[in-house]
């Protein structure tokens, strides 16, 4: 069976063939692996990859699965399934006029007002989460179109705190 998986923002194509119970053959980029597996628990698989044993931990988080091997996390999703988070990221890349917090936060100080000209990298707003203050910077040169929040507001990732330039989409929560 063919799979297209998105692993850490990279899409890769793999073929997997399930053999007798407890084993499969996986091919990716010209390499083929013989994998025996045991489901130790819902979150724990014991794999033997080409004879090499590996403990793998896995949990589902939305459409993404978090996989941990030897302490290193991998975030894997079906590349063709809709995922709200990846859409959000894409939008940020395509239209870099918005300032949005990377995580739930509280607005501490607003450093610009509507009509101000800003340069890429200028600090425009300071937010705080888990007691840590961070200054969010203007993603591009332009003019501040609107400040959508006031000091003390609780804000979420994806919420547009400050519109810069034109063409900004309405706030999407």
């Amino acid at each position: 069976m063919d799979y297209r998986l998105k692993i850490d923002e990279e899409v890769i194509a793999l073929q997997a063939e399930k053999k007798k119970d407890g084993s499969m053959v996986l091919s990716h980029a010209g390499r083929t692996y013989e994998i025996e597996y045991t489901m130790v628990s819902e979150y724990h698989q014991h794999l033997v990859v080409d004879g090499c044993p590996l403990n793998v931990f896995i949990a589902r988080d939305g459409n993404t699965r978090m996989v941990v091997i030897r302490g290193v996390p991998y975030y894997i999703a079906d590349a063709d399934a809709g995922d709200s988070r990846s859409r959000g990221k894409k939008r940020d890349q395509v239209i870099p006029q918005e300032v949005t917090p990377p995580m739930p936060a509280v607005v501490v100080r607003i450093l610009v007002s509507a009509g101000d000209s800003v340069k890429q990298g200028d600090g425009v707003i300071v937010v705080s989460s888990m007691k840590m203050e961070t200054t969010l910077a203007a993603p591009a040169n332009g003019k501040v179109k609107a400040v959508n929040v006031t000091e003390g507001d609780k804000v979420m990732p994806g919420q547009i705190l400050i519109d810069i330039d034109r063409d900004a989409e309405p706030p999407n929560q």
Partner: peptide, 22 residues
């Protein structure tokens, strides 16, 4: 990080997909 076990991680994803019964 060095994500040297990316293929094994993908295998784990597929195994997880294939074995929903658990």
């Amino acid at each position: 990080p060095d994500r040297c076990y990316a293929d094994a991680a993908c295998a784990a994803y597929i195994i997880d997909e294939l074995n929903p019964a658990v």
